[in-house]
Design a protein around this nucleic acid. Structure first.
Lengths: 187, 187, 187, 187
DNA sequence: TATGAATGAGGCTTCATTCAT
DNA sequence: GATGAATGAAGCCTCATTCAT
């Protein structure tokens, strides 16, 4: 019956969780329907097709991170050390509490060669993430160096999340965070 | 007249290329058959099913890297600097010349949460890779530190490959290699 | 603010054009909604379902032809030759200006065997058309002969329209018209 | 199980009957599967998709008519009158015994405006049909006139078949055949 | 009246896998 | 072994229709 059961945003965030755990191609519209408590058909009122839904999911997750995580880097009231501390702690929490690691990295490695339509969404996500860290590292590094260290940190973070998932050991992410913090003070 | 057109090993390596580019779930048995110039039926003579085929592929690729790349770390005739130089140069070549990045990382991020059967193959691959780098860094670092730096380097490498693919810019891998080399001399 | 954008009759005539071009089964309610600039829901206020809508369309088109074309045959002020001349010229214009040929013939050939509900509408349309030509040919033929020639002419006309569409050549209809005119004078 | 249950040609002819009765868009792959006693999937071993299947059907029906009907026009052993007599009798039988009239005309009127891919198959069918009648009428008419009368006859025939189906009365085709025969002797 | 989310069946197609030959 | 037709489940998507608002 009518009466929006789930808002578009709720559909997007619920779908994001399913895609993160199962991957893009291994997630069927039926899976998403079950996860959202809706019928398959409903999705096609909100999204043209599975690909467009995925784009909305990627965009939505990007926004979620921008607001919740990346924004910390631009906070007025924190010292660079506090920013980094909060930033990394939050990132760790966001990626640890949820099954499936990082949707963006998963999607990148699964689809970059066959579904270039998703690439812009991934690019923008990692650009914003890198920008945020660059902002933080700019406190103790020259702009160019700050950016390189930010890039390195994002790359390490994703690599550490992969190791954490492969070996079932959170130590890898912890160690990465420590290295990042030392980098800031070493600048 | 049978004239096995492709040996089992050739099937495995050819399939590896397809899986690397397309991902596991997005690759059909028909895709593989076409890529190998064989009929679908042939695959079921060699492998019980798609999952077993994938395991053989993961194992085969692991062996390929072990022989071709990881072995460099244990060579008698090279200095640690030469080993690392050769190792990284070769790794860069292996991952750059081929579409699709790193099969092992791709498979990890695509299947870890839904197909745990593949995890042992991924674990062993990354363990051997880490071991090899640990061996090299042991020249200038204590065992524990050497291992941590090796883990960090592998993680950074995969992160850099991801950035390289996302942004279509090989600079990310180049920069990662430079950092790795500096790490050795800094030990 | 409702401002019924399209009257029921306008909906019917617009829908007729879509059905003529696309056929009955290949036209969705959504297609019609888009063509009319309305929401799907509106159609269900005016018509019980797609079948009833189609009946209304067939009826509406019949009426349109009756008023606009068939009526010429019963005009007081024209000679039989003038009637036929005007009739055929108008018919040619009506079928040429629009994509998709003749809705009635299209619907007949598409649905006669599976949707007998439409048959009465088709029968009445072709009966009125035949009656009109019979009236004209009665000027120079006995009633029975006039009717047979009228039937033949309608059949030829539809066949010629089909050839025109298949070969993209209006010549077929032109030649048919010439034959019809010669038939009148030969009576 | 393996063992070809139905040859490709049998599938084509059986499908032709279903398409003729139900139309292209109103015939589902499931309908065809049931009619052929096969599963839906099998069709995709023989034909790329529904459209390609339809092309094969149109081609197969064309061939069937070419061999069975049109060939009569080129027989050495018959007088023109005998050819026409046999030709028309056979055509009448072929179109009367089967539900759904003429697949080619049905397909033309249903799909010409939306599926131009079918047009070449329809064009060739009607060209061969026209050619055959042209050959027969050439006995008593100049080439150009013969062709025009052939075209007219085909068009009339299809129109008459439509009337036969609309009114459920075979008289329309009978009368058309009589007119065609008179045309030959009048040449 | 009008809207538009929702439904549920069904449409075309793909896929891993089987099996008679 | 090798082939390729066949299977049957599942995948993405469309459609006619309903109904709360």
């Amino acid at each position: 019956m009518p009466v929006q059961k789930l808002s578009k945003d709720e559909i997007i965030l619920t779908s994001a969780g399913v895609f993160r755990k199962q991957g893009y191609h291994n997630t069927s519209m039926a899976d998403l329907a079950v996860a959202c408590g809706l019928t398959k058909g409903v999705f096609y009122h909100h999204f043209e097709n599975k690909e467009e839904l995925m784009k909305a999911v990627l965009h939505g997750v990007h926004l979620h991170f921008k607001t919740t995580l990346f924004a910390l880097a631009y906070s007025d009231k924190l010292t660079p050390e506090e920013k980094l501390e909060k930033f990394l702690a939050k990132a760790q929490r966001m990626f640890s509490k949820s099954d499936g690691g990082c949707l963006m990295a998963n999607t990148a490695l699964e689809t970059l060669s066959t579904l270039p339509e998703f690439a812009p969404y991934l690019r923008e996500f990692f650009r914003d993430w890198t920008d945020a860290l660059t902002e933080i590292f700019s406190a103790t590094y020259q702009p160019e160096a700050a950016r390189r260290i930010a890039e390195q940190s994002v790359q390490e973070f994703e690599g550490a999340v992969m190791f954490m998932r492969i070996y079932g050991d959170k130590r890898y992410v912890d160690e990465m965070l420590e290295r990042a913090k030392m980098r800031l003070s070493a600048g």
